[in-house]
Amino acid sequence: MKGQGRSKATGPVQEETKMYAFDFERPDTIDDALKALGAEDAQPLSGGQTLIPTLKSRLAMPSKLVSLTAIPELKGICTSDDGALCVGAATTHAEVAAGAGAYPALAALAGNIGDPAVRNRGTIGGSLANNDPSACYPAAALASGATIVTNSRQIAADDFFDGMFTTVLDEGEIIVEVRFPVPQKASYQKFEQPASRFALVGVFVAKYPDGVRVAVTGAAEDGVFRWTQAETALSSDFSAGAVSGLDVPDNAMIGDLHGSPEYRAHLVKVMTGRAVKAAG
């Protein structure tokens, strides 16, 4: 590009290209997206708030990016016949924060991810497919017993997450929608890592007629998990006190300069208690 006398008014700056080159497609139907994703080393792009920084770091080298954010079928929020809240995979965090009034704890979680500009781009499908061990949405999906609907099947949240940054999604399979059964009471409490604002520990507690579910993000080396002892205790006594006598979960916890494994395990208990209290 240099020395070609490009017009200042119309030429993009290319002096310092950080990313490997790739083709870019922006289909407007799911079918066209799946076709485009059939290419070798093609990768879906949703809001890009994780993937674009990853590409800049040259940690990924897709042959082609297939944008999923121009597909109307993947956007929007509705309520299904059985009362579940259905969120299109390419719905942004800001849209969930504003539009998921039927599930206030979910709306509150979405409204507290990242910062406003990130929330205007990042999507629920992207977050779940990425399964960052410190992301918020995996806790909501797991605690709600959500169903992740893809182009080819329906996957229970209990079966979907498969360890840090890993899910059971196949190559070329994309999330279409996430269905959340709406609980009677719920709350998500996040203890933020003060620099990144990701969850150092985040706990989502959801009370359903058939029992309480508790999902923990940020803490464990294998990513989001259910704290079953707390679920049992809270199902018979939904109070913060029911948690205080429990041993901390025995999952292998993350240890880093922001917190030791013991500290994170302790925080799980504290944040669970806060979530129960906040759920009311």
Partner: peptide
């Protein structure tokens, strides 16, 4: 505003 771009 028009201009040539790459995917990246």
């Amino acid at each position: 505003v028009s201009g040539p771009v790459e995917g990246r």
